[in-house]
Design a binder for these strands. Sequence first.
RNA 1: AGAGGCGUGGCAGAGUGGUCGAAUGCGGCGGUCUUGAAAACCGUUGUACCGCGAGGUACCGGGGGUUCGAAUCCCUCCGCCUCUGCCA
Length: 429
Amino acid sequence: MLQVAAVRANFEDYVKGLGKRSIHNADELLKELIELDDQRKKTQQQLDEIKSKANQIAKNIGQLFKQGKQEEANAAKAESAQLKEQSKALGEQLSETEAALQSKLYNIPNIPNLLVPSGKSEDDNVTVKLEDTNIPNLYEGAKPHWDLIAEYDIVDFELGNKVSGAGFPFYKREGARLVRALVNFFLDEAQKAGYMEVQPPIVINEDSGLGTGQLPDKEGQMYGITDSNLYLIPTAEVPITNMYRDVIVDEKELPIKNVGYTPCFRREAGSWGSHVRGLNRLHQFDKVEIVQIANPENSYQILDEMIAHVENLVKSLELPYRILRLCGGDLGFTSAITYDFEVYSAAQEKWLEVSSVSNFETYQANRLKLRFKDKDGKKTLTHTLNGSGLAVPRILAAILENNQTAEGIKIPTALQPYTGFDFIKVPNS
RNA sequence: AGAGGCGUGGCAGAGUGGUCGAAUGCGGCGGUCUUGAAAACCGUUGUACCGCGAGGUACCGGGGGUUCGAAUCCCUCCGCCUCUGCCA
């Protein structure tokens, strides 16, 4: 969330920034924020004064009792009772103001970076790199992946429907093996790039949801375990970033680089339609996530490094891809800048998002109270960044579709050591 | 899951209603001594908010309550330990 002091200092820039997200009443919003903060300060001043008086009286009463001055003590008690009422009322007022301020802050998204183009929808995203030279000329009988997986019987939606529900498929045979291969490949590559591997919990508590910005208000996107007040994670970003909630790290430790593989769970309420078939959108999918905690001084350099890492993965898998810079309207709530990776799915003839790499600057760090001690011992918010490296199902879909031949499916060379096979033959051939 | 115990500053650990933001030790920082280091000795050392400042307020796992006054008493939640049970 935003810091009020920063809002005061950069008012005009922030209004402009929020404008890129098509928030047109930003100046009102931010003004309200400042007013609430002013009110908070004023109330606290009054409250502190009353409490100070009450503390003084309480001390005196102790003395009076010791000296045996009962009557004076009792008189002081009466005065104290009055102060108590005042302070109770003011205290409630203060809590209300703080809650209102907090809720306003929770509901204002991050300020987009200067590079972020304004725009309303994905149509306004900017392609910053296009590597489409690899787009295959598929043979006559080429099929979309949902037909391929049925034909080869390597992903089973029917079975998933029966056991769990729509969007929870079974992967079978080479399909299961491919998922495991991709996960291992991604993890190994991240480790080579200096990330520490972690295996985080896949349920999180409310504080963690608040820390990275899934809560409040976006509960609808997560599966909740209501009897325990926990949520299934929508991405490993949540547990891995929250490792550093309420932590003050040493400047020398930065950047901190962690990677983790987890299944991800998304309700995707309302986002189903005929355009999302097969593996394109699922309630449960596997993803390897890279997360960095960075010094604000070089977080954009680190963002570039993370983009390069993801680009390498896609290249190694020989997939045609493009990189987009998201416009304000398509930018996630907590992000200051996001680059999306999309791979081309030849049989569907469309681009599939497989990775999102973002810099959150201090937005998450402020919620997390994640700070570092700089050279002068001053505590400063870090920047947080993360990216998918990568999400499995759409990569799988693209591999199946782009690498299909009349005889079967070729496995990319880089993946072969992980799959243990280099080809999936057409059944009964 | 049941019974009992516990949760205090970076760490260890005292503190059972006022003089406690909190003893003491360790660690950290500064200094004396030393060619240098160690040891010893002296000093210093929590965080957040409000205030131009003086200063004030809050914080002893979280939240609530009792009281003129709570680290201390009560309720509740969370976590840890021990025993019993269950389980991969």
